[in-house]
C-alpha cells in the first residue's frame, strides 16, 4: 500500500477547469499520491523522456492519466510513444477524455491503453469514477515495480 501511495501520477490535461475538478476528486477520494501535471503532449513526452526542461528530473510515473484532446501533440501520440518505448510501456495509461467515439476507444486500446474512461459530465459521476479507479489500480491490481 505504502509503495503504491508513493507512486507518482502523471496527469496530462490542458483544461484548467478539468484539472481542478480532477484534483478535487483526488482529494475527496483520498488519493494522496504525488502528482505532476503536463498541459500538452509535448510537455508530457519531455517529462517521460527526460528532455528539455525535464532533462534533470529522473522521476518516472507509476501511472499516467491522459487526456486525448490536447493542443499540438495530442494524447494518441503520447500513448503511442509510451507504449512503443520498452522502458515506459509497463506504465499503466488511463485515457480520460470527453470523447465516447467508438473509433477513438478502439484506437486507444489498439495502441496499448490500459483503461479508457469517458469523463462524466456531473462531478458525482466523476468522483465515483476516480474512486473506482483508485480502488482498482491502487488496491486490487498488482503493478510492476
Amino acid at each position: 500500500m505504502n509503495t503504491k501511495s508513493n507512486q507518482l501520477i502523471l496527469i496530462v490535461e490542458d483544461s484548467e477547469e478539468d484539472y481542478e475538478t480532477l484534483e478535487r476528486a483526488f482529494r475527496k477520494s483520498g488519493l494522496a499520491n504525488p502528482v505532476i501535471r503536463c498541459c500538452d503532449g509535448d510537455e508530457a513526452l519531455d517529462f517521460l523522456f527526460h528532455r528539455n526542461e525535464f532533462a534533470h528530473d529522473q522521476r518516472l510515473p507509476g501511472m499516467i492519466l491522459l487526456d486525448l484532446n490536447l493542443p499540438g501533440t495530442d494524447g494518441y501520440e503520447v500513448l503511442e510513444k509510451v507504449k512503443m518505448d520498452k522502458n515506459l510501456r509497463s506504465i499503466p495509461v488511463i485515457v480520460l477524455t470527453c470523447s465516447s467515439d467508438p473509433g477513438d476507444i478502439s484506437r486507444c486500446y489498439a495502441s496499448g491503453a490500459n483503461t479508457y474512461i469517458q469523463k462524466p459530465v456531473s462531478f458525482e459521476g466523476f468522483l465515483q469514477a476516480i474512486q473506482r479507479l483508485k480502488e482498482y489500480w491502487f488496491e486490487i491490481a498488482i503493478l510492476p515495480r
Binding site: 490542458d14 484548467e16 500538452d40 493542443p71 499540438g72
Partner: peptide, 19 residues
C-alpha cells in the same frame, strides 16, 4: 509550424498551443 502539425492545423478547434 512543426511539419507534423502542418495538416492538423486546419482541423476545427485544433490548437497547437495551450489555451
Amino acid at each position: 509550424i512543426p511539419e507534423k502539425h502542418q495538416e492538423s492545423i486546419f482541423r476545427i478547434f485544433k490548437r497547437l498551443h495551450g489555451r
